[in-house]
């Protein structure tokens, strides 16, 4: 083939340019740490990476939900514990009052004590978490869930559960409603005890003590139900954490650069580039003009 100056220059430029292009490609990959930086660099892998990213972000939302739910559960559990301990106080008062040495006057004093226990319990049952009533069902705002007119206790909330999504198609109820509290006979046994003390009815006082015991047991079973919900949360949290760890490593495998490979390729390309440059500078001067004088 007859080789002209233009052919030589064209090939040299082409070699230098393509080397430069490859160097730039490897260099950006190494600098950014990403081999798949946009859809066009590898559409299939980019689409996969997008799905991984989406799933990771969704799981992070679930983890946030779990965290919020745990806060609510912990508050509820500690409130139930507090209520249980007021039950124990009430029971102690009842046992003291049941003693034969007490007369009607003494028992009225004990009744006043029980009355303040009732008020304490009402306050606990009306507690809020982040400004929301804990025991009001889904009536979390507005009127307090329980009101006490000095004679009877009324529940103003509803019996709706508060649900939280903690994983795909997986909801858990995180609240104890006021109705569930009422079902433990919490207030009725206290009110009955107070009335029995006021009327100095020792038989009723005795049966109230038993009622208080069964209320305590039922409160305890509510607490343990919450405990099992919290277990579910913790297990799901662990599962999501593991899933996200795996997904992150898949994501990295999909879009990140294999550094050792990239650096090796970069070095090889650098050598090619240098060779192209040095042959270019030689070849440009290579013609007859250099030799005839």
């Amino acid at each position: 083939m007859r080789i002209t100056q233009s052919i030589i220059m064209r090939s040299l430029l082409q070699n230098v340019n393509s080397s430069k292009e490859n160097i730039n490609k490897h260099q950006t990959a190494i600098a950014t740490g990403k081999e798949v930086r946009n859809s066009s660099s590898n559409p299939v892998r980019f689409a996969r990476a997008s799905r991984f990213r989406k799933t990771i972000s969704r799981n992070e939302q679930y983890l946030k939900n779990i965290n919020d739910a745990k806060g609510w559960l912990d508050t509820t559990t500690s409130l139930l514990d507090d209520i249980s301990s007021t039950m124990i106080d009430a029971k102690e008062i009842a046992i003291q009052a049941a003693d034969e040495s007490n007369n009607a006057e003494d028992r009225r004093m004990f009744a006043d004590k029980i009355d303040s226990v009732i008020n304490d319990t009402i306050n606990l049952a009306n507690s809020t978490y982040l400004g929301k009533y804990v025991f009001g069902g889904t009536n979390t705002l507005g009127d307090k869930p329980f009101s006490y007119d000095g004679v009877t206790v009324t529940y103003n909330g509803n019996s709706q559960n508060i649900d939280r999504r903690i994983a795909e198609n997986y909801n858990v109820s995180i609240n104890i409603t006021g109705s569930q509290l009422e079902d433990t006979n919490l207030f009725s046994s206290l009110v009955d005890l107070r009335d029995a003390l006021n009327s100095n009815d020792t038989t009723s006082i005795q049966s109230s003590i038993e009622n208080l015991s069964s209320t305590s047991e039922e409160l305890f079973s509510l607490t343990s139900a919450l405990g099992s919900v919290k277990n579910q949360l913790t297990m799901t949290e662990k599962r999501l954490d593991t899933a996200n760890m795996n997904l992150s490593s898949y994501l990295s495998q999909t879009e990140d650069v294999d550094l050792s490979k990239a650096i090796t390729e970069y070095n090889a390309e650098e050598m090619t580039y240098k060779a192209a440059l040095s042959t270019t500078s030689d070849a440009i001067h290579l013609n007859l003009l250099e030799f005839i004088r």
Partner: peptide
């Protein structure tokens, strides 16, 4: 282009 130049292009030598 190389083929074309191999026929039509100017060779300095």
């Amino acid at each position: 282009k190389n083929q074309r130049d191999s026929v039509s292009g100017v060779s300095l030598d």
